[in-house]
Simulated scan of single mutants.
Amino acid sequence: MSRPARARIDLAAIRHNYLHAKSCAPSARAWAVVKADAYGHGAVAVARALAPVADGFAVAFLEEALELRESGIEGPILLLEGVFAPDELAAVDRAGLDMVVHAEHQLEWIAAARPERPFGCWLKVDSGMHRVGFAPPEVAAALARLRACPQVGRLRAISHLARADEPGEPYSARQLAAFDDAVAGVVPASLANSAAVLDLPTAHRDWVRPGIMLYGVSPFDTAHPNAAALRPAMTLESALIAIRTLPAGEPVGYGGRFVCRRPSRIGVVAIGYADGYPRHAPDGVAVMVRGQRAPLAGRVSMDMITVDLTDLPEAVVGDRVELWGARIDAGALARASDTIAYQLFTNLKRVRVEHQR
């Protein structure tokens, strides 16, 4: 029998979440963001499931896009980081990809290229994130250069919001104003990430970019009415592989962080930080066993965690354990562990992945 750790991916939930994004921004088209292997959910499987309804797919770089093309995905694909070297432009041309242009050197590479068909380009505006992109005073000249370039066909503008996951934060309005002043409405635009899709209609524009919301996790730390409709797409589960009975006062795990306050049944689950379960999860965060919540008891190890089963006397070796999913919120676990659900999903490894339609 193989190790019981597995991630079950509900593709119907991802389709539901994509359509919810569309319903929140009904006048916009939507890039389904499937970078980083669809946030650990399997980019090819997710893209195939969304292909009948998605307006296009957004990935980080060329290899991610080519994987989708080679798997039969024919719709628009956007490279969010553009190209890293001029020789990548030939592959962009062959695969018919759109690309972000965020720097002077990329402009120069495009101007020197000889594509068979004009490129679809998205000029990146640094409206306040300050990672990549053209500063607002540089945007008009960059747009003019791209318009004058015969290698460029479709031309659009794109930016990214740094604090959209903080509803009411005025920095988002400042970014929108900076973007509008720079672009002056002359090209179609894309600004809205998941948080802005759900909470900031003024950012919706021509294209939105739902990412984490596709996978059923709210981008907000507090409840939001539009996020309530999201359906978790991943269930991470394993099984109890041992149960120990310990007297009061006995420590459990590395460093003895957890000490039994009463005679206790301690269950061992085959999952650990080498699989992607957060190493810094504190005592008391819950897993689900037989429909009941059981608290973590002791430090997370590389391959195992220990949970307190004292109040679940019926639990036995072999019982399934949900680490996150429909009943254990990945976002809440991430916050308790001083991380984010994005990292939980993208760090997942050593577990079987099963896609369910």
Rank of each mutant, 00 (worst) to 15 (best):
R6Q: 14
I9G: 11
A12P: 01
A13V: 02
L19K: 07
H20F: 01
S23C: 00
P26V: 01
P26A: 04
S27V: 04
A32R: 13
A36W: 15
A38Y: 13
Y39V: 01
V44D: 15
A45R: 12
L50D: 10
A58F: 01
V59W: 10
A60N: 08
E64K: 12
L66T: 14
E70C: 00
E74C: 04
P76W: 07
P76N: 04
L78C: 13
L79M: 13
L80T: 12
E81K: 10
P86V: 03
E88G: 00
L89M: 02
A90W: 09
A91G: 03
G96Y: 03
G96S: 05
L97C: 03
D98F: 01
M99K: 13
V101A: 07
H102Y: 10
E108D: 08
E108F: 00
E108A: 15
I110N: 04
A111W: 08
A111M: 14
A111H: 10
P118A: 05
G120S: 09
G120T: 09
G120F: 01
C121P: 02
K124M: 15
M129R: 15
G133C: 03
E138Y: 01
V139I: 05
A140Q: 15
R147F: 09
A148N: 11
G153W: 12
R154C: 03
L155C: 05
H160F: 02
A162R: 15
A162Q: 09
D165M: 03
P170F: 10
A177L: 12
A178P: 01
A178H: 03
V183I: 10
V183Q: 13
V186D: 13
V187E: 13
A189S: 12
A203R: 11
R205A: 05
D206C: 04
W207N: 06
V208R: 13
R209A: 00
L214K: 09
L214G: 07
G216C: 07
T222Q: 15
L236I: 09
L236F: 09
L236C: 05
E237F: 07
A239T: 02
T245A: 08
P251M: 02
V259A: 11
C260P: 05
R261A: 07
A270S: 14
G272W: 02
A274P: 00
G276L: 07
A281R: 08
G284M: 09
V285P: 04
A286V: 02
M288G: 01
G291S: 04
R293P: 04
A294G: 02
L296M: 05
G298K: 05
R299S: 15
S301I: 05
D308L: 07
T310E: 15
T310S: 14
D311V: 00
L312I: 14
V316Y: 13
G318A: 10
D319H: 10
D319Q: 06
R320D: 11
V321Q: 06
W324F: 15
R327A: 07
A330S: 12
R335K: 04
A341W: 07
T346S: 06
N347P: 00
R357D: 13
